[in-house]
């Protein structure tokens, strides 16, 4: 059987909120090392990769590898019934066709069990190559969210450029143009307010803003976001999940015809 007890249940709620509009159905792959998920959006332009390590759970048991086929909208409905401070336990039998979500209130005076039907999903795992990215920028996640949202009101695509000076976001549309530059900034009081740029080579790529916007639904998971870019490769937008792992989004760049 599989059982995972997560003291900070709100993390799972936030993960679902971040991906439920991008991906419809996906397998949660459970093994003795944790829970992993890899799924493409319906148009196969973006890829989501989630890792929740066993060590981040208060209790974790997985006797044999299980692929739990889940409709994310339905799981989100179930998790919305959990309080933000609740402890959430996931449970599934080896041969079962359901998953149980147990919610415990912080002072243990309310225990809820929600049982959700599983589905059979044929999923193909994509091989994501290990890449030494040409540019890696870490910046406040709320700032990234704000920039992407602001640019979306002006254009459909954004050019993201990284030089040793910083990262720039540019767009253009019927009403005009916009260009935002965030400079490397390591002299701020709080580490989470820093913008850091690691660069091997300047890089500039074009992306659809609607996907970047969707990724920023994960902002609540982490105060910082890391953007990894290389010429002619998908961007990686990574939100680290404290003590547990990460939620990564990959987005294919737009290319010249």
């Amino acid at each position: 059987m599989f059982e995972g007890r997560l003291l900070q249940g709100s993390l799972l709620k936030k993960v679902l909120e971040a991906i439920k509009d991008l991906v419809t159905d996906t397998n949660f792959d459970c093994s003795e090392t944790g829970i992993a998920l890899q799924a493409m959006d319906s148009s196969h332009v973006a890829l989501v990769s989630l890792l929740l390590k066993d060590t981040g759970f208060d209790h974790f048991r997985c006797d044999r590898n299980l692929a739990l086929g889940i409709n994310l909208q339905n799981m989100s409905k179930m998790l919305k019934c959990a309080g933000n401070d609740d402890i959430i336990t996931l449970k599934a039998e080896d041969e079962g066709d359901t998953i149980t979500f147990m919610f415990e209130s912080p002072n243990q005076d309310k225990i809820s069990d929600f049982e959700m039907k599983l589905m059979d999903i044929d999923s193909e795992h994509l091989g994501i190559p290990d890449t030494d990215y040409q540019a890696i920028v870490t910046m406040p996640s709320a700032e990234f969210q704000r920039i992407v949202r602001d640019l979306s009101s002006i254009g459909d695509t954004a050019v993201i450029g990284v030089t040793k000076e910083g990262i720039s976001f540019s767009t253009g549309g019927d009403i005009g143009k916009a260009n935002i530059v965030c400079r490397q900034n390591t002299n701020v009081d709080k580490e989470e307010d820093q913008t850091t740029v690691e660069i091997h080579e300047p890089v500039s790529l074009t992306f659809a803003l609607r996907y970047l916007n969707s990724f920023t639904k994960a902002t609540a998971l982490s105060p910082q976001v890391t953007l990894s870019l290389s010429k002619e490769l998908p961007i990686v937008v990574e939100y680290k999940i404290e003590k547990m792992g990460f939620l990564r989004f990959y987005l294919a760049p737009k290319i010249e015809e």
């Binding site: 890829l47 294919a252 737009k254």
Partner: peptide
């Protein structure tokens, strides 16, 4: 104009 390729053209099946 630019084209939007699929993520599959970067990451093969594994």
């Amino acid at each position: 104009d630019r084209q939007q390729p699929s993520i599959l053209s970067f990451f093969g099946g594994g």
